[in-house]
């Protein structure tokens, strides 16, 4: 009875667009959904450093090198904001990392694809970040305060990411024949994975309805996907490149672009761990974590010693 009343009050706050804060009462399922979603989001930022880090030492100009380095650093920062937001729900960062390493927590599958050429730095920035931004802009209105605040900060910082990606595509598209080919090849490889980033269709999505009702999510997978496709196609036309989908066509009735059916077999295959990078990305993260263990122990032990000596003195 008590719980039902609390639940009603809780929904009332959500409906009135009042943010939920860490110490407020919340349904256990709301907490669990947030823990899963925010940490997954954080892991994605952190794992997402790797495919771009892959080209950091090979960036072909000083300018490109600086920008890429700052961008990967931002991703580390965004992961950090999100881990901290997730921690307000009562789970420590140690635990999140453990779940990631044990394979219990997921990250966005798109980062399991390899970055094969420099043009991938363009395509990842333009398409993958472009898709992520559509999602993040919508999440600025999420109902959980710490998550919403992290999103506002992330969106402010992300705005340069997509631009840097698009700029690389522009440079390549107007460059030599080989460069243009490189750009087209990257678009071919990243287009479908970027579309799949929005997750399964609304009809297939396990968590969608409740998340929308609680305003954890503010728009459905398909709505976000459509808005991403609509704006990206216009941008692609400026590049003079072709999207790898013969059925991409503006629909006068819906005022949106139609697209081919998505290859969900591939999507689930990558989610389940059969992508080119799944093992690699996780192994890289685990190795860094294990290599750093003695450093963390040293820092902790030093801090204890310092506190002790202060108390004596």
């Amino acid at each position: 009875m008590e719980n039902e009343k609390k639940l009603e009050q809780f929904q009332g706050k959500i409906d009135a667009n009042i943010k939920i804060e860490p110490k407020d009462w919340m349904p256990e399922k709301y907490r669990q959904t947030l823990i899963r979603q925010i940490s997954q989001h954080a892991h994605s930022e952190i794992i997402g450093m790797q495919p771009e880090g892959n080209w950091l030492t090979r960036a072909p100009s000083l300018r490109a090198k600086k920008i890429l380095m700052a961008k990967i650093q931002d991703e580390a920062g965004h992961g950090l904001y999100l881990y901290c937001a997730a921690e307000t729900l009562g789970v420590k960062r140690e635990q999140f990392l453990e779940w990631l390493h044990e394979g219990k927590a997921k990250y966005s599958s798109v980062f399991n694809y390899p970055t094969l050429t420099w043009a991938d730095m363009g395509a990842v920035g333009w398409l993958v970040d472009g898709a992520a931004i559509v999602n993040q802009v919508s999440l600025q209105g999420t109902s959980y305060g710490p998550y919403a605040r992290a999103m506002v900060k992330i969106c402010m910082e992300e705005s340069f990411h997509q631009r840097q990606g698009f700029e690389i595509m522009v440079e390549l598209a107007k460059g030599t024949k080989e460069q243009k080919q490189m750009a087209q090849d990257a678009l071919n490889r990243w287009w479908w994975p970027s579309i799949m980033m929005f997750g399964p269709h609304d009809s297939e999505s396990a968590h969608s309805n409740q998340s929308l009702k609680w305003k954890i999510k503010r728009a459905s997978n398909d709505e976000l996907r459509q808005s991403y496709i609509d704006k990206t196609i216009e941008q692609g036309h400026h590049l003079g490149l072709t999207f790898p989908d013969p059925n991409l066509k503006f629909n006068e009735t819906t005022k949106h672009y139609d697209y081919s059916p998505i290859d969900w077999d591939e999507f689930w295959n990558v989610v389940k761990g059969n992508g080119a990078g799944n093992k690699l990305r996780l192994k890289h993260h685990i190795k860094a974590h294990e290599d750093g263990k003695w450093v963390r122990e040293a820092a902790k032990s030093y801090s204890k010693k310092m506190n002790l000596s202060k108390k004596i003195a």
Binding site: M49, L56, M69, H284, A288, G292, V295
Partner: peptide, 13 residues
Amino acid sequence: AEYCSKAPILEED
């Protein structure tokens, strides 16, 4: 740059 994403703690990265 080679060390990117390999630091012992995220803050250090």
